[in-house]
């Protein structure tokens, strides 16, 4: 269905475009794949458990700063291996960001479809909520919710999932309305399909590329938000560890052991950079709303 309806993108062009992928994007893709592998295989990759203490080897510098190979990236003040903590942090931070991005996309798309389907009052409410969300700094909203409920992992994921829902809602509402005008949605409806079927099987596949692009653009923002909250001590709580958590904790040892903070900080920067480069590139390739 979707292939038949999008003759503007013949199959051959995709391969040609992939060949023309800029080296920076190739690098970004490799980095993302590496991070995903780390997240999936952390049990086998990690040299130690992330909570294992080695009290005789506290605040050991990493190899490139004159440390030993036993602790490649050094240790913290309890003798916990920085590399092991880093790998587990990558997993948790990515999991949170993935979960939150999916929640945001699902909630936003659903509300957007609802607005497009029901119109009238519901549509106005959705749009007013979207305006409200877009006009408030998200960090402040997130902080106030955390103040009221305290921090837990589930709450954190749900909360970050609310970030950016309004963008998906606007996109899916706009595209669903225009899909309704294109005739194919009206046609399946005439054939007796339920709204679930019309939106889920026919409209959604047709607008998926735009939504995926928005997801790649929202993903790095969520990583930054999570690490910011965890850095402030209000996100992921110990003994769990996330990238922002490590930076916040390493801050106390900034003068004596800067390596505790430098490795998670560089992972945050490289990952957000890679995902947003990939997202920008995808947007230029895929998004039909941009020329």
């Amino acid at each position: 269905m979707s292939i038949a309806l999008s003759p503007a993108v013949p199959v051959g062009t995709t391969t040609r475009k992939r060949a023309g992928m800029p080296p920076m994007v190739v690098f970004a893709l490799c980095w993302i794949v590496a991070m995903l592998v780390v997240a999936a295989a952390v049990q086998w990759l990690s040299p130690y458990s992330y909570t294992a203490l080695d009290l005789r080897a506290r605040l050991q510098p990493p190899v490139f700063m004159g440390g030993s190979w036993r602790h490649v990236l050094g240790t913290d003040e309890l003798g916990r291996d920085v590399l092991a903590r880093l790998l587990y942090s990558i997993r948790l931070s990515l999991l949170i960001a993935f979960g939150a991005t999916l929640i945001g996309a699902a909630v936003g798309t659903l509300l957007g479809f609802l607005a497009a389907h029901l119109r009238g009052f519901v549509e106005q409410v959705v749009l007013a909520l979207a305006d409200f969300q877009a006009s408030m700094p998200f960090l402040i909203l997130a902080l106030s919710v955390l103040a009221f409920f305290g921090s837990s992992l589930t709450l954190l994921v749900c909360l970050l999932g609310l970030h950016g829902w309004e963008r998906y809602a606007r996109i899916s509402r706009g595209l669903a309305i225009s899909a309704g005008a294109q005739g194919y949605a009206a046609a399946v409806k005439q054939l007796g399909a339920s709204p679930w079927r019309v939106y889920g099987r026919h409209v959604l596949p047709n607008i998926a590329s735009t939504l995926i692009v928005s997801m790649t653009l929202a993903f790095p923002e969520i990583i930054l938000l999570e690490s910011g909250l965890s850095f402030l001590g209000l996100g992921v709580q110990p003994p769990e560890t996330s990238l922002g958590n490590m930076v916040g904790y390493g801050r106390e040892y900034l003068t004596r052991a800067p390596w505790i903070l430098l490795s998670p900080a560089s992972i945050i920067v490289l990952t957000t950079l890679s995902v947003s480069m990939l997202g920008d590139w995808l947007r230029d390739r895929l998004d039909p709303t941009l020329r």
Partner: peptide, 18 residues
């Protein structure tokens, strides 16, 4: 500009302190 967007402010701040 891209670097400015992707480096979170707490990382930049701590690097400047360092």
């Amino acid at each position: 500009a891209v670097a400015g967007f992707t480096v979170p402010s707490f990382v930049l701040g701590l690097l400047l302190v360092l």
